[in-house]
Design a protein around this nucleic acid. Structure first.
Lengths: 300, 300
DNA sequence: TGAATCGTTTAGCCCAACTCAACGATCGGA
DNA sequence: TCCGATCGTTGAGTTGGGCTAAACGATTCA
């Protein structure tokens, strides 16, 4: 097992890539950092940092160690912080994010069950924007959220799929497809899709606002918008079409907008997300409870 | 951040609940353990162990800290071990478990993709027994497995549902229900269900071999068997019925056994499981790849 | 080519981690 | 009820190693 100083020196140096500033941050001399890292490298049996007097870089093995150690240490610190908070008699606080009203409903039910178990818990909710689905988690404001998958980020844990909703195509009432009643993904090539401008990962954008049909035809996009409620107005005005979950028809009806079920699109999947290093007992429990609620209400 | 000795003293004492033996294991004097724990308690701000000169017990806050710290430290040690192994030029080793042939097929595909990425990886497979679905993981023999959910264990991480299969009822060909073609869960009350004797958690057993119908009628059980292949013979011989996934009809055909689809049963869900403290990069990557395979082959 | 920057090394100091031994509390058995 | 055994705690004393300072050497840029 590694000494505390070894872990701190390694993680800080991996972040700053500078012995002097690492020493400064840890209130140690540069020499000590050098010695500590050297000692670590002897224990591991490999160089962890490529360094000259001008540059410091992680080696592949250094990267491997960092990727494994960083979340583990974060988790340990979270555990200690939770114990300290409990010692000070702090209430359990969980801030829950959700991306759509149906996700919100599910999480509120789960939150109610958590409150039934721990009456003095403090469960709060926040709707997250599709334009920036992960920043709430990353800034630590949100502890756990139910939102659109896929999310494959190294620092984020994605729980099981809790909700799976068929995709629908939202078109103006006078659109040719509206008469037909259903749509196919190929039809998108003959429309203009309104994407939501976003800080989301590329694979996430590509999943929700595809740029090509399965056969490879390009899907024209309009200028992106920032908020979901802008989209409905634009669709009604005939400026384009958009893709949404089937339940949006119930939750977001809008005159002049017709919801067409896709014959062939993959459903939109929603799952729980939380930061790998910040999985408190309350987050774990809420995830379990939410899975229970999802199972019971399935298909409704 | 906690010192190494503090963490080791705390975790060892939480396990052994004995200052003397903790000191012995850590090659320290009992006095040092006492001082270290005292120091930790001051830092946390609460008593972590209730102790007299005769008994040592974790307080609730001690329990909280232990539940959070134990997996985090395991993860950190796994990360260090992985780095040491990589330094020694060790090949990536992953031992994959699966409970059914269709789970095996999926994991073998995922394993092939891992091999495509890391040609020198060493991916091996093992079929796990329904009678003891978790021991392979817990002993560390299996790194990751695809098997029946739900699994809610503190030390095990359950990934997303990768496969969802309708439940079917397996009855002898001359069974009254066989003519009808389908079954309901209520019908189970009029049969004798053959359960598999198991070391699985109670909720797992109750999910797969229910003892009551939804309306509350008891479901008779026969003597449990140990292996799945025994079940088919017993069903064919008219000794009872059993529940299996729909795909079992293709993978385990047996003369004299009829597979009836349920009209109302929940599907059997299969998901990835791994030990919370042993999530290596290879395990993470394999989980991602398996999710990809599952998505592509969905519905087949 | 020279100066500035930055990681490394070495020698030496000093503190805190550790041991030891005495102490006190608890419990079981006579 | 008393005695002895067990076990955690406390305090004094010691020593090793973690740490600093300063000299050194490598790299980069003007």
């Amino acid at each position: 097992m590694l000494e505390r100083v070894e872990v701190e020196a390694f993680l800080t140096l991996a972040e700053l890539l500078h012995f002097g500033r690492t020493a400064e941050r840890l209130h140690l001399s540069p020499g000590r950092i050098s010695q500590t890292i050297k000692g670590l490298e002897v224990r591991i049996g490999a160089t962890l940092f490529e360094r000259t007097s001008r540059t410091v870089r992680l080696t592949p093995i250094g990267h491997l160690l960092h990727d494994g150690l960083r979340p583990a240490i974060d988790q340990a610190e979270t555990a200690v912080a939770a114990a300290v908070a409990a010692a000070q008699g702090a209430r359990i606080r969980v801030h829950v994010g959700y991306s759509t009203p149906w996700c919100g409903d599910l999480m509120i039910s789960a939150g109610d069950r958590l409150l039934a178990e721990s009456p003095d818990a403090d469960v709060t909710f926040e709707e997250i924007q599709l334009s920036d689905p992960l920043s709430g988690l990353r800034t630590g404001r949100i502890d756990i959220q139910l939102s659109e998958l896929p999310v494959n980020e190294a620092d984020i844990v994605a729980g099981p799929v809790l909700v799976s909703e068929p995709r629908t195509l939202l078109v103006p009432a006078d659109h040719p497809l509206a008469e037909h009643g259903t749509a196919t993904v190929e039809d998108l090539a003959d429309t203009r899709l309104i994407p939501i401008r976003g800080a989301a990962p590329d694979y996430w954008q590509a999943m929700h606002f595809p740029s090509h049909t399965p056969s490879g035809r390009p899907i024209p996009h309009t200028r992106p918008v920032t908020y979901w409620h802008e989209v409905l107005g634009l669709v009604a005005a005939g400026r384009g079409v958009t893709i949404a979950a089937a339940r949006a028809a119930r939750y977001h009806p809008h005159p002049g907008v017709v919801h067409l079920t896709f014959e062939d699109a993959e459903p939109i999947r929603y799952g729980l997300l939380w930061l790998a290093g910040r999985q408190t007992p309350a987050v774990t429990r809420l995830a379990e409870l939410a899975a229970g609620v999802a199972e019971e209400t399935e298909g409704r």
